[in-house]
Nucleic acid binder design. Structure first.
Lengths: 236, 236
DNA sequence: TAGATTGTTAATCGATTAACAATC
DNA sequence: TAGATTGTTAATCGATTAACAATC
């Protein structure tokens, strides 16, 4: 299962590097679209918004795909990163919870463009089963296992309200899904071997608020903060 | 500007800790809703999905809000964390780009529940200016500066297509916004002192795909991966 | 007091960065 | 060859974790 064909240098890529590879891939796609055939680590780092030392260190985990004194061939490096991430293959995805956010996700073109194919939209509410969203029928949640097996779904997206999310995750795991992207604002408990990534709008805003508070944002609010213990803290 | 009232231990909280404080706050809200008055670091850590050593270390940056041998008072700790993050005050937010995702964000109740108030929805497309979303009028993008000043907006959310995002960010910065939450799949360039946080669905999926590929997900796809160089890589 | 649990220390681990030898 | 740029080393920095003294 963990065996790879020989000559592969790519073992044990640090998590922080893995998280940046898709950023590099997107930057390379941008360079390619602009007609750039070759780029230096400095060029690519700028496009990706990191420094070039970090970029070169990251790429070194994949192998040696550059040429000293020259740089990187954009198409070749793109392909190597895409292969490393796994987006040269096709990934069937199922989305559960077709409310406002589920609609947005189903219509999101970024899914399709990187090898992710939405094969089913599921919702527990029968009133939604009439709908067709982004050309895909909304089906009952109870069809999950059948769909997972039929399409070989490995990745599930949860966009239900928080109270439903754990139950949805349990069913996904039971059906064989081992990678979950969770948009519901709740902590999911899953067995070892199942990956969960979480996108949480409210948490992102709170992190921004923390830094904003420390910056002293608008003059009026800063004044309110500095005015004292501020047990209520509502700015004017 | 960076002055605080005395007795505040809260200086230089590590970034990793800051990112977890909102998670603790949510877990505490859950405990409170369940009628729990006191909890141990072990209880709270479980609810938040972290280990208790990390939780205690994190909380130690805020001060000493627990009682040895007893644990933490849920309401008291909630308040202290909320104050530290800054969500005891009210944060006016503007959302730019009212497509599918913008609609979902405008309707997202998690915004309101944590002190974030959507004061305006902006879109460059005049055909959207008739709309009322979540009880808020959609207004022209050119109204941005006026709205920012009128409401003291410190946080801007970008949910436009990628090509528009940098221009939106530039205008936000010019209007005085110093914290941006970016949903557009593009790297934003902003002056020092402006915080950008990025939520990128496609990148999250690619990170999951990387790990899924290494796990050997469905038997058929795993077979395709192991079959050899797989220059095309499309699984059966 | 005895049991429980915090807050802190110190060791470990992982990520970042600058510098530069290797080499095109 | 001379100039440019990679890939790697080593130093630094920050985050995690286990263990336990402090103390309720």
């Amino acid at each position: 299962m963990t065996e790879r064909t020989s000559s592969e240098a790519s073992r044990d890529i640090p998590e922080a590097t893995v998280a940046r590879l898709p950023v590099y891939l997107r930057a390379l796609t941008g360079l390619s679209d602009a007609g750039t055939a070759t780029c230096s680590s400095e060029d690519l780092a700028t496009a990706a918004g990191v420094n070039s030392a970090k970029l070169r260190k990251d790429l070194s985990y994949l192998g040696s795909y550059g040429t000293r004194g020259v740089g990187y061939d954009v198409e070749y490096l793109s392909y190597q990163i895409a292969r490393e991430i796994g987006v040269t293959q096709d990934w069937p995805v199922v989305i559960v919870g077709i409310g406002n956010l589920g609609h947005a996700l189903a219509n999101f073109s970024g899914f399709r463009s990187r090898g992710f194919r939405v094969v089913a939209l599921l919702d527990a509410d029968p009133r939604r089963h009439e709908e067709v969203v982004a050309g895909v029928d909304v089906r009952p949640f109870s069809d999950l296992e059948e769909i997972v097996h039929e399409h070989g779904v490995a990745i599930g997206v949860i966009s239900t309200p928080a109270p439903a999310a754990q139950d949805v995750a349990d069913h996904m795991v039971a059906a064989g899904i081992r990678s979950i992207l969770n948009f519901a604002p709740t902590v999911l408990t899953v067995p070892a071997g199942v990956d969960v990534r979480k996108v949480d709008l409210s948490i992102e805003l709170q992190i921004l608020a923390y830094h904003e508070q420390r910056k002293g944002h608008a003059a009026s609010a800063a004044a309110a903060v500095e005015r004292g213990p501020a047990l209520e803290g509502r700015p004017v």
